[in-house]
């Protein structure tokens, strides 16, 4: 039921936030089940890789399958833009000042 092996890798970044949108189906592999249990709250691809102790590239393959099966949702990161978003930079500065 879940594929993605043959197709292109999903466009994921280390800091793409992943959220499970379904319980693990009965057909899920142990890796998929573990991943789905981990990201009931948003978690970055990097954190998933760390907690599951899987190399980043293996993580992206696993996530590509789960995205194709609509079992997880991906929230894309904000990358540096050619015209930098000042509001974003100010928000980050404000957040750092609270540290």
């Amino acid at each position: 039921m879940i594929s993605g092996e043959d197709g292109a890798r999903a466009d994921l970044d280390l800091v793409t936030l992943i959220v499970a949108c379904a319980d693990p189906p009965l057909s899920a592999t142990p890796e998929q089940t573990a991943l789905l249990r981990l990201c009931t709250a948003p978690l970055s691809v990097a954190e998933l890789s760390a907690y599951l102790n899987l190399p980043y590239s293996v993580m992206t393959v696993l996530l590509t399958e789960l995205l194709a099966a609509d079992l997880v949702q991906a929230r894309a990161p904000i990358a540096r833009q050619s015209i930098a978003d000042r509001t974003l930079l100010e928000a980050v500065m404000h957040g750092l000042q609270k540290l």
């Binding site: 280390l14 800091v15 793409t16 936030l17 959220v19 592999t29 142990p30 890796e31 089940t33 573990a34 249990r37 981990l38 709250a41 948003p42 978690l43 970055s44 954190e47 907690y51 599951l52 929230r75 894309a76 990161p77 904000i78 974003l88 980050v92």
Partner: peptide
């Protein structure tokens, strides 16, 4: 992955809120 119970995850207090929309690095 014998049992997913053995997979360590974030502590409850380390969970991001569901409102977390995007990340920067």
């Amino acid at each position: 992955f014998k049992s997913s119970d053995t997979i360590p995850g974030p502590r409850t207090e380390d969970h991001l809120p569901h409102t977390a929309q995007a990340a920067v690095k």
